[in-house]
Simulated scan of single mutants.
Amino acid sequence: MSVTPLASVPATRPAPAFRGRIGQDARSGHYAVPRRYRLHLSPTCPDGLRIAVAHSLLGLDDVCPVTSLGVVPDCPDGGHSALRPLYEASVHRYTGAAVGPVLSDDWSGRIVSTHAPDITRDLSRHFGGGTTALYPRGAESEIEAVERLCARGIEQAAQRAGTAGVGPGERDAALAELLETLGALERWLVGREFLIREQVTGADVDLWVTLVQLDTVHRHHLDAAAVHRIADHPLLWAYARRLAAHPAFGGHLDLDGIARRHHSRCRGLEAAGSAVQILDWATHTAQVH
């Protein structure tokens, strides 16, 4: 798998409501001060899980505290009532959904960012300082390419392959794209423990969460034959299993919560693939919970 050509793949996640950044000095508006910022997240949300894993890898419990959100959003619009005061303090007469994850500024009581990639990068760059460099110098383009690959080649492809009401040709094309992406990752992982460096990086966090979603959410809308083909990538799923055994990864995996969140939001039809679990996540994470 070559990460360089992937730089041309367009980003697919929706534009976030807030894109403030933590900077080095006062001119940025949000300069780096320990215990100034707070995370509001639920690990049952994919972006919340990404941030939670990164936060643990960086050891930031004392530097940037976490306020846990409910497993399932409690507002009809998909937002969290606990976040409503932050949104209303940040935008006059805010009428949208108060969604997580959120990085807030305890000094002002306002939101800094709701954009997960920016949040993890800023936490790593300005508060990491330890042995774990999630965004090592020179690796940014590779990590961004992996993020785009996960979003388009796995998340969106799996979503399209499991969407009811679309033609078989479109579903087959989406499944082919998904399998092509998984095959490229399988070949890339030959002889590798991690994705792009000799230690865990942000690319591993993003891919691992994407694989969790593929097995715990997307497969429920695929047929059994498709799920068996997805599972037929032993190096890739062994990689996911190894990371699940790491406390920073598996320690945040709430399988029951993910299922509850999925069922509360999903209006799709369950397919035969629902009965074909790829990994026994509970067993692999039992020792880290």
Rank of each mutant, 00 (worst) to 15 (best):
V209L: 01
L185Q: 04
D172Y: 10
S56R: 14
T12N: 15
V66S: 00
S2M: 14
D204W: 10
E140L: 14
A231T: 06
R148F: 08
R192D: 02
F249S: 03
V205A: 14
G183V: 06
P43S: 13
R19S: 09
W281E: 11
R35I: 04
V71T: 09
P168D: 12
E170A: 15
V102H: 09
G129T: 01
V33Y: 03
C150T: 05
A226I: 00
L222K: 10
L211F: 00
G167M: 13
P34D: 11
D172K: 15
L149T: 11
G251N: 02
P5A: 09
T4H: 01
V212N: 02
P73H: 01
R93D: 15
T181W: 08
R137A: 14
L253C: 09
P168M: 10
F194M: 02
P43Q: 10
L269Q: 13
L182E: 07
S81T: 08
W237G: 00
G48Y: 02
P76E: 08
L123D: 11
R160F: 03
P46L: 08
A158N: 06
A157Y: 04
L57H: 03
G162T: 04
G153W: 04
G23H: 10
L123C: 11
Q277S: 14
R241M: 10
G23N: 12
C64F: 00
F249Y: 12
V63A: 11
S8F: 04
L6N: 13
G109C: 13
D122F: 03
L195G: 11
G273V: 12
S56I: 04
H55L: 05
P136C: 14
S104T: 06
